[in-house]
């Protein structure tokens, strides 16, 4: 047991707090009835996950988590919800997967992953590449991870074409316009 009033002791308190933030955010995201609150919970969950990455000595991944998930994804979702019709007070019938069945499923999944993590013999990585130096990130992006890097551009292309298709739908050119 580490004494509380040392750097390590305080760090572990903060670490536990961040795990709490992640879990609470996830619970809010799944259990609230208002869509916007669910997105806020999701943002809290992402902030917690970013903090966990920081504790795992990956500041670059942590910052990216904030920048992309909190800053871009959550804002986009909120914006989409704002543009859609308000659904306050509308209750869905409830999927068969919702309720006790999903809790059981979640427990089994958690137990399985935890058992896997504890029983595997992990070999530590040879080097920490994401210490945040630009040169290292650039090198590994264009050598080790070049495949992933290229595939991301494909995903973006699909997203652009998809949004174009959605935006063009129902906007056919009439005779008078042309």
């Amino acid at each position: 047991m580490v004494p509380l009033f040392t750097a390590e002791g305080l760090t572990s308190v903060v670490f536990m707090a961040m795990i709490g933030v992640t879990v609470v955010g996830a619970i809010i995201a799944t259990n609230t009835e208002r869509l916007i609150r669910a997105v806020a919970g999701l943002a809290i969950c992402f902030i917690g996950v970013a903090a966990l990455y920081y504790f795992l000595q990956s500041p670059f991944v942590a910052v990216m988590e904030m920048l992309i998930y909190v800053g871009a994804v959550c804002v986009t979702i909120v914006f989409a919800v704002m543009l859609a019709d308000p659904e306050e007070g509308q209750h869905g019938k409830g999927n068969i997967l919702a309720g006790p069945f999903s809790i059981g499923l979640g427990v089994i999944l958690f137990w399985g992953l935890a058992a896997l993590a504890l029983k595997t013999e992990w070999t530590p990585a040879a080097s920490v590449i994401n210490n945040g130096s630009v040169v290292e990130i650039g090198k590994s992006l264009l050598t080790t991870y070049s495949m992933v890097f290229e595939l991301i551009s494909l995903v973006l292309l699909v997203a652009i074409i998809g949004s174009l298709v959605l935006a063009r739908a129902g906007r056919t050119r009439t005779e008078t316009e042309s």
């Binding site: 806020a40 500041p59 910052v63 920048l67 914006f79």
Partner: peptide, 26 residues
């Protein structure tokens, strides 16, 4: 003195938008 300080500032600045958005909606 973080190595990725510049990115960190942009990451936190992006939360600002979410705050204004939720405040406006709320």
């Amino acid at each position: 003195d973080i190595n990725i300080g510049l990115l960190m500032i942009f990451a936190f600045a992006s939360i600002n938008v979410l705050g204004l958005l939720l405040g406006g909606w709320g």
